[in-house]
Structure formats: structure tokens, C-alpha cells
Design a binder for these strands. Structure first.
Lengths: 219, 219
DNA sequence: CAGGAAACAGAACGTTCGGTATCCTACAGG
DNA sequence: CCTGTAGGATACCGAACGTTCTGTTTCCTG
């Protein structure tokens, strides 16, 4: 999302994010406008205007607005996941060090001029909530992110890696929507603080106490 | 939001949620459709169909779709806040007991057939993110909720009541969007567990340690 | 230079949108 | 009985939508 995916692969050219090709320009313009103004509120004309292409080109390359929406979500999701996982992994350190990079990374994202929230959450928000279409796409995206976080929480020796990972995911989603509404990147600090508390609690459980899972809720 | 606001005030009749009057039926239908399918995706005709009124009536009572949207958000926001605060307060107990009722209450909401996420978040998500219109409405709503939570975190003797309250708010938002996407009320349990950890950490800070705010982030 | 693909420009399509205008019905209180 | 008012039905308006169409320009390749 607006992460610009610097350089990507430098292969061939016909890839998704090629800014030179008509396809790349359309994808880029559609991504920007869908995220900024919403999918339903963005007309075909606005997209081709920003992309500098003709309507014919869009329909030859994507066939329909629906297909374009799907292409945008797919490419943007992939780019975001690569950026996010990279932000955790790059710099090395142990699993806990990587997890602690989550919210500083999000804060950088929130501070970008073109931060418009999570495209998947937003797509679900503006469509029929009984339809599975966008919810499934969003779930698939979240599952990949969650899997990586879960790997790290297990690696750091958390008492309940899955629970901790889900809790972190909730904080991430909460921070994203709060940042979208408030436009205050500082919410990432609050979320990071909460996460630090969860890390501490999870470690205590494993290294200092025996079991008593009831205490989990009790305090 | 779908909380149905049982009985409300029983006064006069011209109030917002009167299911008998044309105004009440329009408000109810618009609320349902806006939340379920999105504001932009909901046409006037669909609203009057569900309300069983004529188009004339809608425009006589509300003047425009924009006004109707505002009326819906205002009435729904008020109803939701009354329900949510009531869910915390009703039953008594100390401040911590009240705070611990947050996520069980949310879970009940998530499990409702007509749960479609937070109308304010959704409204922001499907409109221009550079415009302040819906973001301000959403912020006002969240500020009222946050103020009540903050009152309780202070009352329970949290070391940093404001920080804790913001953290809880993030968990609430995260749980709402996660529940909207996944349709799994169980996310409320995960959020509740995280909240319990935060309660514990906040108490420790006050009763067992002296200060060292650096430790807050350190672990 | 010829030919063809790719992208251009833009008119037009049928539909739906938000909103208006006209007329009709039911029923209240004098 | 008369009349005011709240609401219902429907036809309509201009604009915008997604989509398709007819052409024109550009440029690479044989």
C-alpha cells in the first residue's frame, strides 16, 4: 500500500507494477484512487485520467472494473506483505527483536502522505457483508501475515504462540483503522506499548510460572 | 448498531427510532442497508422499498441522501454508545469489573445476525480519506467512548489511565474489524485475553514497582 | 515502405443514480 | 361537510455510471 515496492525484480517488464507500461500505470492509478476514495466512489474515467490511458486500453487489459479491482487487491496485497515481512526480518536479531519492529514499521506507514488504511478492510467495509467475495480475499491476506507472526511468536518461546499472534494481529488491525480515522501515526506507539506488555506476559508464563492457565484471565 | 435500543424513552413519538412513523421506518431501513451494503452502494429506491414509504416522504423528511446519512450515523452512534456503556455499567462492581465486561459484550454484538462492523469506520473507509467530514464524526463518537473507558481505567488505579484506555480502544477497534471480516465472534475472547494482560501489567506498575517508565517498552 | 499491433480519443449505449413534480388517498378537527 | 396535512404512487429530470463502439495515431517489424 503506497509502499512503492522499490525496484521489485527488474525482470522482464510485463509484471504488475511496471510504471512504464499502460498496465502498470492503470494498476497504480486504480490502486491510489480505490484506496483514497473507495472502490464504489471511483469511476473508470477518473482511473484512466490519472493513468493517462484510453478506456479501450483498460478494458482490453482487464476486461471489467471487477477484474481490475481484483488485480489491484492482489498486487497491493502482495506488495504490502513483502514490505511488512521485510520490515520485520531485515536487520536480523532474534524473533522477539523482529516482532518489536512491527509497530515502528507501521508508524512509518501511517505517516506516509498516501496512507489510506488497509485496502482489504476498506473493501469489505463498503460491500455486502453477507457476500464472501471480499471477505475471503481479506482473510487470505491476513492469514499469510498471521502465519509469519505466529512463526516468530513460537520461535521466541511464547507460552501460547497462536494466541499471542492473534492478539498482535488485533492490535495491528486496530492501529490501522485508528490511524486511518485519526490520521495520527502515534497510535502505533500505543499499540507497540500494548504489544510489549503482551510479550512480557507471555514470557512470564513460560519461564517463571508453572501452569495455572486460569491466571491468564484472572489478571 | 442493530442493538434495537429496546423501548428507548416511550415519550411522545416523533423521536428517531419510532418504528411506526415513516421517519422511524426510513431511519431503520437506511441504517440496516447502509451498514450491510455500504453507503455508496445503497440507493434511495432500496431504502424506500425496505421502509415501505414513498420517495416523496423521504425527501420531505430528510431533504437529501447526505442528510439521511448523517441522521443515521447520529442516531445509530447514540444508540450504540448507550448500549455499550450500559453493558459495562449494568451489573455494578468496581471499575475493573466494568472494564472486564467490554469484550464479552462485544462478543454478543459480533454474534448478532445483523452485525456489520462499526458504521463509523466503514463510512470513513468508503469515502475520500483526505476529507474531514466522516472522520470528524467518527472521532467524536470514539472520543465519547474513550472518555468513559478512561474514567474507569483511572478509577481502577491504573498507572497510566490514558495509555491503558487507548490500548483498550485499539483492541476494541481491532476486534470489530476482525469480526467484520472473519464473522467469528471468538475474536472478542482473544481481545479480552489481551486486555486482561494489560490490566495486570498496569496494576503491577503501580503496586509493585516504583517507576522506571523505560521498562514499559523494554519488555 | 507495408502491415499490424497497441495505444490513443471520444461518442454513444443502456442503466442507475439522487432528486423533483404532479396527482391521489386517508383522516383529523373545526 | 369542509379542509388541512401526512403520506403514497408514479413519472420524470439531468447526470454519472460501466461498457462498447468507431475511428485515429504511433511505432515496431518484415
Amino acid at each position: 500500500m503506497g509502499k512503492s515496492v522499490s525496484k521489485r525484480k527488474a525482470v522482464a517488464a510485463s509484471a504488475a507494477g511496471d510504471e512504464e507500461s499502460a498496465r502498470g500505470r492503470l494498476l497504480s492509478a486504480a490502486t491510489h484512487l480505490f484506496c483514497k476514495n473507495g472502490i464504489n466512489a471511483t469511476g473508470i474515467d477518473a482511473i484512466i485520467d490519472e493513468a493517462g490511458t484510453a478506456k479501450t486500453t483498460l478494458y482490453k487489459l482487464f476486461g471489467s472494473k471487477t477484474n481490475l479491482v481484483n488485480a489491484v487487491l492482489e498486487s497491493e496485497g502482495k506488495a504490502w506483505r513483502e514490505w511488512f515481512i521485510g520490515a520485520m526480518e531485515d536487520g536480523g536479531g532474534d524473533a522477539l527483536a523482529k516482532l518489536k519492529r512491527i509497530f515502528p514499521a507501521l508508524k512509518r506507514w501511517f505517516a506516509e502522505e498516501r496512507f489510506y488504511g488497509c485496502p482489504f478492510i476498506n473493501a469489505v467495509a463498503e460491500h455486502d457483508k453477507d457476500a464472501k467475495q471480499f471477505r475471503n480475499i481479506a482473510l487470505r491476506h491476513k492469514k499469510v501475515v498471521l502465519a509469519h507472526i505466529e512463526k516468530l511468536t513460537a520461535e521466541m518461546g511464547a507460552a501460547e504462540p497462536q494466541v499471542l499472534a492473534h492478539q498482535l494481529a488485533l492490535l495491528i488491525d486496530g492501529a490501522i483503522v485508528a490511524a486511518m480515522v485519526s490520521r495520527d501515526p502515534g497510535v502505533a506507539d500505543t499499540a507497540g506499548l500494548a504489544a510489549a506488555n503482551l510479550f512480557g506476559a507471555s514470557k512470564v508464563k513460560k519461564t517463571k510460572r508453572a501452569g495455572h492457565p486460569a491466571e491468564l484471565v484472572a489478571v
